[in-house]
Design a protein around this nucleic acid. Structure first.
Lengths: 336, 336
DNA sequence: GGATTTAGAGTTATCGGTAACTCAAAAGTA
DNA sequence: TACTTTTGAGTTACCGATAACTCTAAATCC
């Protein structure tokens, strides 16, 4: 492929002159500039970013490390991130950790060797602290999105998981529900802890006793809810929950699927509310009562904060909390 | 950051020796190997991919150039592509063209300057031919996914748009529909042409006259269907279509939304069938009758073909056609 | 034991750019 | 006119790795 040397030779000038034309730096006569430009165009010259990266010590690449691009929340987040990155002159590399620490670790190593300029990361869990410390050790700026990690200070863009949960549970209580089950993700993840806190606090505020056997911990990823649902329906009818608070979209789907397989209906037999679903607008009839988060802004703002930090060192860490919105729909009905 | 020189100095050997240890090439005594390895670990050495890229002339980066990651078809395709890439040791950079040739052109230039090893692309349209020729000119392997481009020979992973369309239209005819509207994407895109061909052929096979005013061309992206729907319902009731074949998911949603806004119901007033929806499994009650495509495989197979070609030059171009599956659901009902 | 092979390295050049410095000629100034 | 400043370049070194070649000492062979 044609390099700056080829251009220089043909233009009978030094490579520096060519470099100056490319970057519009230094002093160059208009005549020379035009001549070099013409030759670059004629020879179809394209600068080599790898060479540039090597000397400039910057790649113009951002790594987006999420758990699963097919989770609609992260899909939209990714789009927000990519739009912002493009606007600011960066490329986005994406990776799916599947909430798996080993996979995350592999990606972190790749990220380091790629010398990306920054990392936008939704960490797999609290144990990601190691990975984040590694990034810090190598001086690679990062911004946490959606999840925080205890012991790690950094820029963050988070949702208001606690408030959102409270709104959902309050909604159920207002509908007359008292026996409310809670199927949560791993407590290793900050949002799961906040959602739990919101659940517990709301029950307490409403003088409802917390039933430990109404609380289930599982995972935010796709999984099989049968064992949990079976435990629930094995309870005597007078003690069985009448409503379920599911901590994210995949949990909700798994729960509904399992209920239906057992001949139970939503909302007739169980009301269901959930967090995290982003209500993609290609669903014809939105059915779920949800706390919807502004996923696009998670990505957009996170990417902006990140690039901001890459450009000029910033002293303090910044946190942005994005509110969620309660959308009441058909999956939750008054207790009859 | 620590480089191969720092390691060499500390290990009292040459950089080549270190390089040999890193890559497990050449002859090295076990003793030296261990010593160097220990020092690399101690100094937290991470190889610099940019430097490597420069000399090896390969970046281990693939560019995934699609129209919109938030289109669930491409979301899943992207996941399939990333999984395959990771397995084979490549990173994926993604970009959204929004079916916009200018944006696509910008990305192509970036891709060239990044010296990515290959491009997996769902081209914006037939005019993308220029961009593909540019890739070819610079010897960057690419694989077309989902869409082909006239005049461009290459590896391809395509859907069976024509057969899928025939199945959808046959289904409507079997339900008794005769006046079937067709809202299509831009004819600049190969799938739109194939879907059109399937529609026309099926009508002809069933001795149904083609009504030009039942056919509408718009865009595959998010858009407003009001003008089209208004034209349709302005027709006298005896001539008005009773069913709609929408060429993709966004068109379908826009059409249903517009119909509802005008007080019309699906399927009571209009049956609707569509292509391209991938039936994301987090939709609680799938409503649309669709021709579902195996999006994950589009990405997985496309990426494999691409990396295959990167590794060893292959003489002939390969085409893979992935079948779609008719899923009959509530959006289409018998004509009463 | 001397010639040949092989193991285990080191040297040098190069990939494609850019920063920092240098330098001659042209332009401006007293 | 003689001196200073500015303009328009060129030179050199370097970013961090690897390929290709070289070289020495030990091992093998006849």
């Amino acid at each position: 492929m044609v390099s700056i040397y080829d251009i220089a030779k043909r233009a009978q000038c030094s490579t520096m002159t060519v470099s100056r034309v490319i970057n519009n730096t230094g002093r160059i006569s208009e005549k020379t500039r035009q001549r070099v430009k013409a030759i670059m165009a004629e020879m179809n010259y394209v600068p080599n970013q790898a060479a540039r990266s090597l000397v400039l010590q910057q790649t113009k690449i951002i790594s987006l490390l999420i758990t699963d691009i097919t989770n609609p929340f992260y899909t939209t987040l990714a789009r927000g991130a990519e739009d912002a990155a493009k606007r600011l002159g960066y490329q986005v590399m994406f990776s799916n950790s599947d909430e798996n620490l080993d996979k995350e670790k592999e990606y972190i190593d790749t990220v380091l060797s790629m010398r990306v300029d920054g990392v936008l990361i939704a960490p797999a869990g609290d144990h990601s602290v190691e990975h984040l410390e590694k990034l810090r050790q190598y001086n690679i700026p990062f911004v946490l999105v959606d999840r925080e990690v205890p012991g790690v200070e950094s820029d963050r863009v988070l949702g208001d998981s606690k408030e959102g949960s409270k709104a959902l549970v309050e909604h159920l209580i207002a509908l007359g529900h008292r026996r409310i089950a809670f199927i949560n993700g791993s407590l290793d993840i900050s949002t799961a802890r906040m959602r739990r806190a919101g659940y517990l606090e709301t029950l307490k505020l409403n003088d409802i006793e917390v039933q430990p056997d109404y609380m289930f911990d599982t995972t935010y990823s796709r999984f099989d809810a049968d064992p949990i649902i079976e435990k629930m329906i094995a309870m005597p009818k007078s003690k069985r929950p009448t409503a379920i608070f599911a901590a994210n979209n995949f949990i909700t789907l798994a729960a509904i699927r399992s209920l239906r397989a057992k001949g139970l209906r939503v909302p007739e037999d169980f009301s269901i509310v959930c967090f995290d679903d982003l209500d993609p607008d290609y669903i014809v009839d939105p059915f779920l009562t949800i706390a919807a988060q502004p996923a696009y802004d998670f990505g957009r703002i996170g990417m902006q904060m990140l690039i901001d930090r890459i450009h000029g060192p910033i002293d303090e860490y910044r946190s942005v909390i994005l509110p969620s919105k309660l959308l009441v729909r058909q999956s939750s009905t008054p207790l009859t």
